[in-house]
């Protein structure tokens, strides 16, 4: 199987957000593979190990993304491609999906996996937009995938219910929490990753009309949520605390 994984470099989930001049500051921030994309990488490796073939990880990003791509190679992916678009202004999900669509134009693929959302912008748009541009069927938020020949059977998380879906390859899927437990890259895997191919291309090396990939949306400003005032730690006997809590919720907060 020819398997591709879409990967994004994102803030570590432990990072606090600092806003500087209306923008999120990335100063001193630790980056990781977007956790949902990590599920996708893991699943791609498992499928490759089971069915044979090759896993290629693709990222639209900046040069720094090389680190996350190397991590995916260390986990067991075979190849990585970085589509550098640092010089590109005005990007949004439409931009990313269009660049990817151009990249996939001359590729053979059976399966494209991505994360269900990224943990920064959380739009969940890139996968479905890409599928639409490529004319591919897609299944979002999968928690299981089995491939048998040309057929994939998937489980999809629908607000707690599970849909069992059948689809034919080629297919695009996006990974939801619970799909698998991503492995830690092994130390020998990390050593080997250095020797695996990591290709860097510039977005304008692709067959793209710059006007067509221009962002459709723009961010006007970014801000932090209002700080919560200090809460009230109740005291006294537990029974008294509970009574006080319920009466507070009932009368002050008007909730119950």
């Amino acid at each position: 199987m020819d398997i591709y994984v879409l990967l994004k470099r994102t803030f570590d989930t432990e990072e606090k957000i600092v806003i500087n001049e209306g923008k999120v500051s990335d100063e001193g921030v630790d980056f990781i593979i977007n956790p949902y994309d990590e599920f996708a990488v893991e699943e791609a490796i498992l499928l490759r190990d089971k069915h044979g073939g090759e896993v290629t990880v693709v990222s639209v990003g900046s040069e720094e993304t090389e680190k996350e791509l190397r991590t995916a190679l260390a986990m067991g992916a075979d190849k990585a491609v970085l589509i550098n678009c640092e010089d590109l202004e005005a990007q949004d999900q439409h931009t990313t999906a269009s660049i990817l669509a151009a990249f996939f134009q001359d590729k053979d693929y059976d399966l494209i996996l991505g994360g269900n959302v990224s943990n920064d912008n959380s739009t969940g748009q890139v996968g479905p937009r890409l599928a639409e541009q490529l004319g591919l069927p897609y299944v979002t938020m999968i928690t299981n995938i089995e491939v048998d020949g040309n057929t994939a059977t998937l489980k999809r998380d629908v607000e707690g219910d599970t849909e069992v879906i059948e689809a034919t390859l080629p297919l695009l899927v996006t990974a939801q929490q619970g799909l698998n437990e991503p492995r830690y890259p092994s130390l020998p895997g990390i050593m080997k990753a250095k020797r695996k191919p990591l290709e860097e291309i510039d977005y304008d090396d692709l067959d793209i009309d710059e006007d067509e990939i221009e962002a459709k949306t723009e961010t006007i400003t970014t801000f932090l949520p209002p700080e919560k005032g200090a809460g009230k730690i109740l005291d006294g006997e537990l029974e008294v605390q509970v009574k006080e809590l319920v009466s507070n919720l009932h009368q002050e907060a008007k909730i119950l």
Partner: peptide
């Protein structure tokens, strides 16, 4: 490469 190994052990 060693830095990379270190990062992964740290994680």
């Amino acid at each position: 490469e060693i830095e990379f190994l270190k990062t992964n052990i740290r994680n």
